[in-house]
Simulated assay, not measured.
Amino acid sequence: MRVVRWVGARLARAILVVWLVATIVFFALRATGDPLEAILGGPGSQAGEEATDRAREAYGLDRPLVVQYLSQLWRIATLQLGDSYARRQPVLDLVAAQLPATLVLAFFSLLLAWALAVVGVVIVASARGRAVRPLGGLLRGVEVIATVTPQFWLGAVLILVFAAGWGVLPATSAGLDPAGLVLPVVTLAIPIAGFLSLVLRESLEEADRAPFATTVRARGASEIRLRLRHTLRHAVLPALALSGWAFGSLISGAVVVESLFARPGLGRLLLDGAMQRDVPLVIGAVVVVALLYVAVVIITDALELVIDPRLRGRHPRLLRAPDVAVGS
């Protein structure tokens, strides 16, 4: 029953998230104007009144707004997302074609963000001597700057330096080209790395003052061994819990980054659909992103159970690991 409750609670959250996202997007798009423009071919369409009436009736736009909203929710519940108004193709096909490129970008960006955060925090925590203490202060400043750096500005600077200036990396990115992935991945990763680093450093400093850290030092363990085998494992938990948020931030940042680097992906698809008031396309893409976000949050919850055995007293034993205390 504990397993059922654990799974049921997360399914309920997933349904709530999808409903909220679909509702906000539906009414926001309708508030910007009539989607009939996208159906008839965009701005400047010369469709007559009879053709306009037929299109409005065919797409159900002549019905009350509440009825259209409920119909949209039913299509989402049955995974019948319909066809794009502007592209005349099934929404699921369009999303499936663009999703892999965005997932690759988000995955490598999150991986790089974690690597930068962990390395930076370990260096800062180890900078205790007088000779290396300025390095720790410098890295702390870099953390704060990275956290507040706008991605569109950072991406533009990277293009000017590495593409236009030095010519070592391409300014555009297409598909899975390794060279083309470097600048978009770095652009997305640096702000997330700064935020994760701040959380990790605070948790690591707290773990360094914990009783178990004192015990490990008393046994003669070096500071590096203490951090790598004990305190870092403890400090990772708060940042790991924020990885779901980080993934959502990466997907939203992909809208800017994919446009800036002329990269195909879900971000550009969403932006184009929003500009065209393509309601089925935008709602379908956003629902898929919401489901991915929920899936990542569930994975991070499960990883927390593996890393910290103390949490298994409050959660069902979905995943088993050796019952070793975090600081032991």
Results as ranks from 00 to 15, higher is better:
5 R>K: 14
6 W>D: 13
15 I>K: 05
18 V>R: 00
24 I>G: 10
30 R>L: 09
52 T>W: 04
59 Y>A: 01
62 D>Y: 13
66 V>E: 15
66 V>C: 00
76 I>Y: 08
76 I>R: 02
81 L>F: 12
85 Y>P: 07
86 A>N: 07
90 P>H: 01
105 L>F: 12
113 A>S: 14
113 A>P: 05
113 A>V: 02
114 W>V: 15
123 I>H: 01
127 A>V: 12
131 A>N: 02
131 A>M: 10
136 G>W: 01
139 L>E: 08
142 V>H: 03
143 E>F: 13
144 V>Q: 09
145 I>M: 15
161 V>S: 10
171 A>I: 00
172 T>F: 04
174 A>K: 05
196 L>D: 01
201 R>K: 09
206 E>L: 15
210 A>K: 11
222 S>Y: 03
224 I>S: 14
227 R>M: 15
246 A>H: 05
254 A>G: 15
255 V>P: 02
257 V>D: 02
264 P>F: 12
264 P>A: 06
267 G>E: 06
269 L>P: 01
273 G>D: 05
274 A>I: 15
285 A>M: 00
287 V>G: 07
290 A>C: 03
292 L>S: 07
297 V>F: 07
299 I>M: 15
302 A>S: 13
303 L>Q: 12
317 R>A: 15
321 A>D: 13
322 P>Q: 06
326 V>R: 06
